[in-house]
Amino acid sequence: MPTDIHDHLPLKPVDLEILLALADKDRHGYGLVQAVSEHTNNLIVLDPGNLYRVIKRLLESSLVAETGRKPSDDAAGERRRYYGLTPLGGRVLAAELDRLRRLVNATATRAVARRLAP
């Protein structure tokens, strides 16, 4: 597995959303679906199949790790598998956000945005 964070950049939009959702706390599968759709104003509503394909990919590249099974508060105490950000995942997320920030703030980008603005 590559440990250099730049090997992981740029992140796919869905991967970025998942990492963002895990940044503030550990979540289980459905928690991730909810967080992502809230955060994107229902632009991205994940189905279980694609959700776990992404999770599998993020697990394999060690950006995300399982943080154990806990009773969830919303599903009558059923035990769910929770996921959290790994230290590497945190660093990659930070680097990606930094990359995006610099992209958005770049002078050329701003000029384009001004020109296209309604």
Partner: peptide
């Protein structure tokens, strides 16, 4: 099993 859980919640 996790996918089923997510779908039931959805």
């Amino acid at each position: 099993p996790d996918m089923s859980d997510v779908f039931v919640d959805q």
